[in-house]
Design a protein around this nucleic acid. Structure first.
Length: 556
RNA sequence: GGCCCGUUGGUCAAGCGGUUAAGACUCCGGCCUCUCACGCCGGCGACGGGAGUUCGAUUCUCCCACGGGUCACCA
């Protein structure tokens, strides 16, 4: 077989040589130790937590080392592509604060190693495909789906390894140049297959996360180019990560099993392999359907687990910083320790390392996430909370966004309630929940939620509020204010010290807890709320008096 | 089924031949307290099983079990 003639027949329009590509995409001029990383999502419209997980690793590795982090769109499968998916992806990454140095953007490509969308790189892959044909390392295969299925059935029946290799590849491999030409002229479609060698060798890959991975060397004639001329993931990965000069390939562990194909291609093309980092799959706990008392781990599924979609975090208003903090604690076992030692630093300052990565599948624990959320938001200053919260409201709760803008000063003051001192309040978990929690600060959203009659009867309510209003001085400090409350409590026959009431409940009509709860319900609509004195000062004297007066009228 | 990867409390996770086997979340007590949220103190709770190697295995080796991944012209 004249391989050069075959190459010319298969790729009549390809003139460039591999060397031309090397010259066009030269090695990057970067400082020693700089990492070049990327994420390569396929535009299916669904952005996964796992996408972010890998993106964060790649981003940290690159930016911590003074390297480059880029976005490549792996759109080689037209069938799965969804309209607008690239924009969705870029928006999600933007929301979560993942910034690319180069690659695909909403406006087009940015960077010298593009195009960054694989379908637009067809010509580049063909240069190497042609070269492989010339070397006798690749050949066209005209097997139909039915023929392949028949081979697979036979292999399954005989317990052989499935695939096109060895004797099963003979039919296609032995085609003469004339036969191939005739097939093409007859309009038959073909795929380009790698010519695998039957062997019993083993390969060893040093994975940066897992250490040595040993596997059988590839022997199969796997597909390089699909019948539409677009490469498979395997071929595209090797060509792209070489030409884009990636130093590290961060991807999910589901790729480990295709490592032999990648190693084979890097070897035959004479290229240095990138450092592979295969990350653990995110898991989820679930009840066993057969035995409800048992629980089992399983892969997060997009149909059953809303928290797998990045969109879920956006809709719930889980702050970008919270998601980073959470993922970083899952990603690096020493992150929590570092965070405790450096409460004021940004997570960007954390020295991330691959060695500290978890190797087994982590469960997404929403309890843990909530805890981290409270801590993270409690660390932010009021202005930052306001800005982030408002930005979320602009997107997901327009009415509330208007309120926040209208009452900016009051909101800022409200966000500072309980912030002083060593034990800051930790009330806010998500922006969505914040809208609910903070609703009592605005007349537009204020509504009674708890029943005051559980605290005392109506006569007491009326008596208390009248006395309270009469003695109320907005200028009182916290101690003076509370002294007055205590005085009224005593006058009404309630215990000033809750413990006294607990010991001898028959001696009192109730305790100061009932009194303050009434006040809290009058002011905030609920029995559980932050410090009354502080809240009163955020609301302002007019609203305080109005909300209490309304209660007296209501009860008279 | 073949080939891979993995297995420390409910979850996350330190450990890297000798430890009373850290810590975080959850849960349960208690304290603080005008409620809640915090905070503090305490408690429950783990090395999948079996052989080796060794004076000694959570740690090293092998086997098994279990979980996961993958075996496409999908990524």
């Amino acid at each position: 077989m004249d391989f050069n003639a075959l190459a010319k027949l298969l790729f009549p329009d390809v003139d460039a040589q591999p060397a031309d590509m090397e010259a066009k995409f030269p090695p990057r001029q970067l400082p020693e130790g700089a990492c070049v990383t990327r994420i390569g999502p396929s535009p299916t419209g669904f952005v996964h937590l796992g996408n972010l997980y890998n993106a964060i690793i790649a981003e940290r590795l690159a930016h911590q080392s003074g390297g480059v982090f880029y976005l490549r769109i792996e759109d080689t499968d037209q069938k799965r592509e969804v309209e607008g998916a690239v924009e969705t992806l870029i928006n999600a990454m933007e929301y979560f604060g993942v910034h690319f140095d180069e690659g695909a953007t909403a406006e087009g490509d940015n960077g010298a190693y593009g195009p960054y969308r694989q379908r637009q790189r067809a010509g580049i892959y063909h240069v190497f495909a042609k070269w492989l044909v010339e070397q006798g390392l690749a050949y066209p295969c005209f097997l139909t789906e039915e023929e392949i299925q028949a081979i697979r059935d036979k292999q399954t029946a005989e317990k052989e390894d499935p695939g096109i290799y060895g004797k099963y590849a003979e039919k296609s491999r032995s085609l003469t140049l004339d036969e191939i030409k005739a097939n093409i002229e007859a309009g038959k479609t073909w795929v380009l297959r790698y010519r695998g060698e039957m062997n019993s060798e083993r390969i060893v890959v040093e994975d940066a996360i897992r250490g040595k991975i040993e596997m059988p060397r590839n022997f199969a004639d796997f597909v390089l180019l699909k019948s539409d001329g677009i490469p498979t993931y395997h071929f595209a990965h090797v060509v792209d990560d070489h030409l884009m000069r990636s130093t590290h390939v961060i991807r999910g562990e589901e790729w480990i099993s295709s490592l032999p194909m990648h190693v084979e291609l890097f070897g035959k093309l004479g290229w240095e392999q990138p450092i592979y980092c295969h990350t653990a799959t995110l898991m989820k706990i679930e009840q066993d359907e057969e035995d409800p008392t048992k629980q089992k781990k399983r892969k997060l599924s997009k149909r059953k687990d809303p928290e797998l979609a990045l969109a879920y975090y956006q809709q719930e208003g889980i702050s970008r910083d919270v998601v980073w903090e959470f993922l970083l604690t899952v990603l690096n076992s020493n992150y929590e320790e570092w965070r405790a030692a450096n409460p004021d630093k940004s997570y960007m300052e954390f020295p991330y390392s691959i060695e500290k990565m978890s190797i087994s599948g982590a469960l997404v624990d929403m309890d843990k996430l909530r805890d981290i959320a409270k801590d993270t938001i409690a660390r932010m200053d009021a202005q930052t909370v306001y800005d982030n919260w408002l930005a979320w409201c602009e997107e997901y709760n327009k009415d509330f966004a208007e309120l926040l803008k209208k009452y900016k000063d009051r909101t800022l003051a409200a966000l500072n309630v309980g912030k002083s001192g060593k034990k800051p309040r930790k009330d806010i978990e998500t922006w969505k929940q914040a809208c609910d929690f903070m609703s009592f600060y605005y007349d537009e959203t204020f509504k009674p939620e708890d029943d005051m009659n559980e605290q005392a009867d109506e006569a007491v309510q009326k008596a208390f509020f009248e006395k309270y209003l009469a003695s109320y001085d907005h200028a009182d400090d916290s101690a003076a204010w509370f002294d007055k409350v205590k005085a009224i409590t005593e006058e009404l026959g309630f215990a000033v010290k809750p413990k006294d009431f607990k010991k001898e409940p028959e001696k009192y009509k109730g305790s100061i807890v009932h009194i303050t709860n009434m006040l809290r319900i009058a002011l905030t609509g609920r029995a559980n709320a932050p410090d009354i004195h502080e809240v009163s000062h955020v609301l302002g004297e007019d609203i305080v008096r109005a909300r209490i007066s309304q209660f007296i009228i209501h009860n008279s």
